[in-house]
Nucleic acid binder design. Structure first.
Lengths: 259, 259
DNA sequence: TTCGATTTGTTCGTATGTATT
DNA sequence: TAATACATACGAACAAATCGA
C-alpha cells in the first residue's frame, strides 16, 4: 500500500523524497525566502503527516546540497548568497601566496541581445530569445584579475537595468536571489587555457601572448534549471583556480580524530 | 555521563563519530580491504555495542565521502579505484566534443630522488627524504593530451619498480590501492595557465607558445594524509577540465521530480 | 543572571519493505 | 523459498544550543 502524504502522493518515490520535492517546490514558489527560517521539523512533520525522522531525512539531503542550512537551537534556513560563508562557495580563485582576498568589481558594459546557438544549448532558451549581456571585471588587491562575460535570459530578470546591476551591494548571485528570487544552487565549469583577445588582454593589463585560464560556467537553480552562462578569463600570474572537492564538508571544526 | 562504546571512548565526540573513526582505523589497518564487504550493520552494532541507527549514521558519512559504497541486499563495500565508476571520479579531463574516452598511458621515466622544499611542504615528508619521480603520458584517442609528473614518498611504496608501475592493469591509484593498501580518497587541485617548457611541449606535440593548463594536485588518503604530489600539463586544444560539483550525487537514476 | 520554551542533534528501539544470493 | 542485508518509516527520550522573558 502506498503512503498517505497529506495532499496525495501519486509517485512511487519514498516518502522522504516526496517531502523533499514539496519543500523544494515551496522554495521555488518563493514561499520560504532566502535567509528566512522554514517551519520547524515537528511542524513540518505535522503538516505533511509524516514522522519527524522522515522530515529530517528530506532536510538532510537539502542540507547536503547546500540548499538549506541547519542551526541547532535556532532552526533551518534557506541558504543565502550574501553571507560570507556562502559568498565564496562558488568562487574558486585564490591568491598563489595563500588566502582569499575580498574582491571588488567594476561593470564594463550592460547590453541587451539575442541568444546565439551556444547560449540556446546551455541556457535552455529558444534561439533569438532576449538576453542580457554583461561584462564585469573582478579586482583582487586593486588589480584586475578576472573578466566575466555574463549572459542571462531577460525573461527571468524583468526590469533589470545597468544601474541596478552596478549598484548592488552583494555578489551577483546575491542580486539574482534578493531581487528575482533566483537561487543559484549548483555550477558546472569547463576550464581550458588560451590566449586572450586584444580587448580582454587590454582590460586585464596583460599581453595577448599571456596564457590565460578560460572558464565556461553554467549556473543552475533548483531542479537543475540553468539560469546563467558565464565566460571568465583569469590572469593566473598571481592567482589560481582551486578545486578542493568537499574539503571540510562532512568534517567540522575541532572534531577529534583519535587515530 | 559519556557513552559506553565497547573498548572505551575517551573523547567528547558523538557516538557515531567515534564509530566512524573506528571504522576508518580498520580501513587504514587494512583489516577491511578495498572491494571487500565490511561487516553488516547489525553485526557492527553488536560489535560496537550501539544501535543500528548509530552505525548507519557513521556509514552514511563514509558513503558521502566515497570511502564506502552501499548495495541494498548485498552489503557495504570499501571503495575501489579499479571499478569504472570510481575510475573517473578523480579524472576531470573530457573531450570538448562530449564524452569521456578510455585513456591509455605510457611511462616516460621512473627515477629515485630526494624531496625538495615544495614536496616537503605538500607531501608532509622531511627535506631530502627519498621519493619516486615518475613521468607518465596520458593519451586520449591515441593522441598525447596530459603529461603527469608524479612524486611519491619511497617509504610508503616499498619495492616499487619501473616494471611494476608500467605493468599495471589499472589506474595509478588502483595500483597504490591494490599493492600498497593506500586508498586515495580525496584530491585538491590548483589550476593555472602557462606556457610549457620545451620538453613538455615536445612530448605533447605542441609548440612552446601554446597556452596549456597546469594542474598541481595533492592526493590524500584517510585522515587527510597526503600521499602523492602530481603536476599535470594538459593540452586543452581538444579537451577541457570539468568541474561539476556533486552532479548526480544526492539524486539517483530515474527519480521522479513532479514539479 | 536565571529560567523556560523552542529547535535541532544524538541515540535508542521496532517494524516493515526491497534487493540479493 | 528462505536467509541476509540494506532502505524506509515510525516513535520516543534526552542532550545541546538559542533566545527572550
Amino acid at each position: 500500500m502506498p503512503h498517505t502524504l497529506a495532499g496525495g502522493n501519486l509517485t512511487f518515490n519514498p516518502l522522504y523524497k516526496e517531502v523533499k520535492n514539496r519543500i523544494t517546490r515551496n522554495l521555488i514558489a518563493g514561499e520560504w525566502k532566502p535567509g528566512a527560517a522554514i517551519p520547524s521539523e515537528s511542524r513540518l512533520a505535522g503538516h505533511f503527516n509524516v514522522s519527524v525522522g522522515t522530515i529530517r531525512k528530506a532536510i538532510d539531503e537539502l542540507v547536503a546540497e547546500k540548499i538549506l542550512v541547519r542551526q541547532q537551537g535556532r532552526g533551518t534556513f534557506v541558504t543565502t548568497h550574501s553571507e560570507d560563508r556562502q559568498l565564496y562557495y562558488f568562487f574558486h580563485i585564490v591568491g598563489k601566496d595563500g588566502g582569499k582576498e575580498p574582491p571588488t568589481h567594476e561593470l564594463l558594459s550592460f547590453r541587451k541581445g539575442k541568444a546565439d546557438s551556444e547560449e540556446k544549448l546551455h541556457l535552455g532558451v529558444s534561439r533569438g530569445e532576449r538576453v542580457f549581456r554583461i561584462h564585469n571585471v573582478l579586482k583582487l588587491v586593486g588589480k584586475p584579475v578576472v573578466l566575466d562575460a555574463i549572459v542571462i535570459p531577460a525573461a527571468r530578470f524583468p526590469g533589470l537595468t545597468e544601474a541596478i546591476f552596478s549598484a548592488r551591494e552583494v555578489t551577483i548571485y546575491g542580486l539574482y536571489q534578493a531581487r528575482y528570487g533566483i537561487n543559484v544552487v549548483r555550477i558546472s565549469e569547463r576550464l581550458s587555457a588560451a590566449h586572450p583577445d586584444a580587448q580582454t588582454a587590454g582590460v586585464l593589463g596583460v599581453r595577448v601572448s599571456t596564457p590565460m585560464l578560460m572558464i565556461k560556467r553554467v549556473a543552475y537553480t533548483y531542479h537543475d534549471t540553468p539560469v546563467e552562462l558565464r565566460t571568465s578569463w583569469v590572469n593566473t600570474e598571481g592567482h589560481e583556480y582551486l578545486s578542493d572537492l568537499w574539503k571540510n564538508e562532512t568534517r567540522k571544526r575541532g572534531e577529534s580524530i583519535n587515530r
